[in-house]
Write a protein that binds this DNA or RNA. Structure first.
Length: 288
DNA sequence: AACAGAATCAACCGCACTCTG
DNA sequence: CCAGAGTGCGGTTGATTCTGT
């Protein structure tokens, strides 16, 4: 079906944001919180499309954004997560404190791709560049099961078997249900509720690994319990890396340990369920 | 100093998904 | 169950900045 434009484009500004526009947007969100992006521009007195406001806020104006260069640990974490998730920039961004999907995507395209290529690694498949020449008769199939504590639990399977271009198929199974995750609570993805990573043999040639990949924005480290840190570390330390990735884990695990309320990061679809802790120290509300 | 090409990154576009009536 | 509205995401574009000649 055709879609109506997201907003009236005839009288909307485009291009770079001015300081005044930024301030209007900040002031409005400070007062009213995020959400209702479609009506926000009018309410805030901005001649901008709602989507543009959302992008500007999420990618640039959010107070918890970390600006500046990516660290080596962040680099490696991005590579590792990309090898597991592909171009799921928003999910990857959820694991990197203060980074946005757009920022990571740009960084990937401008830096990491080249970095991997210089290492002789295909940035798409995370396999050696000459892997295509290697026999595809390798029958080993790795099936990773990831429990994502969002509204549903999902299984992600990476199937290398019978894949012509050597790219793992990531299969997300929405049918799996989570008995432990309470949808009405905004739990960090790495709380004690998460189960330890489990390896589930499926057949002689298949191994199912529970990755415990959760989605969440980072919090400050001083909010992270040791249990959370441990759980996160377990995730990274136990996940089978792609065949070619040799990555220092300690720093990456530290990064992943910085997770936060899911309301903050992804919001609840119903909009009525909230942990009540979604106001941060700067006074901004998130999604709920 | 001037120019060209490369690199970077903010912003846009359109599709897909979810929610709601 | 269906259609439309609202929102989020990933790919792409284009303006700006950087670097080399």
């Amino acid at each position: 079906m055709g879609r109506s434009p997201c907003c009236e484009k005839a009288h909307t500004n485009k291009g770079a944001w001015t300081k005044q526009e930024d301030q209007r947007l900040i002031n409005y969100i400070r007062a009213h919180g995020e959400g209702c992006w479609r009506s926000l521009p009018k309410a805030a007195g901005l001649q901008r499309c709602g989507k543009s406001c959302r992008l500007r806020w999420i990618n640039y104006l959010r107070p918890d954004l970390k600006r500046g260069n990516f660290t080596e640990e962040e680099d490696e974490l991005i590579i590792k997560l990309h090898s597991l998730l592909g171009n799921k920039w928003s999910v990857i961004a959820g694991r990197l404190p203060g980074r946005t999907d757009n920022e990571i995507k740009n960084y990937w395209n401008t830096h990491i791709k080249r970095k991997l290529i210089s290492r002789g690694i295909d940035p798409q498949t995370h396999r050696p560049l000459h892997a295509a020449a290697i026999s595809t008769t390798n029958s080993a199939t790795a099936v990773f099961t990831t429990i994502i504590p969002t509204t549903t639990t999902k299984n992600i399977s990476m199937d290398y078997e019978n894949d012509v271009d050597q790219k793992p198929n990531i299969i997300i199974n929405n049918n799996a249900t989570s008995s432990s995750y309470d949808e009405t609570k905004c739990n960090s993805g790495t709380t004690e509720e998460t189960k330890p990573l489990e390896i589930i043999p499926q057949s002689t040639s298949q191994v199912m690994i529970n990755l415990e990949l959760s989605i969440g924005l980072p919090l400050h480290t001083d909010h992270i319990s040791s249990a959370e840190s441990t759980a996160s570390y377990n995730f990274l330390a136990t996940v089978a890396p792609p065949p070619t990735a040799a990555v220092p884990m300690a720093g990456a695990a530290e990064m992943v340990a910085k997770t936060v309320c899911l309301c903050w990061q992804i919001g609840f679809q119903g909009g009525s369920q909230c942990c009540g802790k979604c106001k941060n120290t700067t006074g901004f509300y998130r999604f709920c």
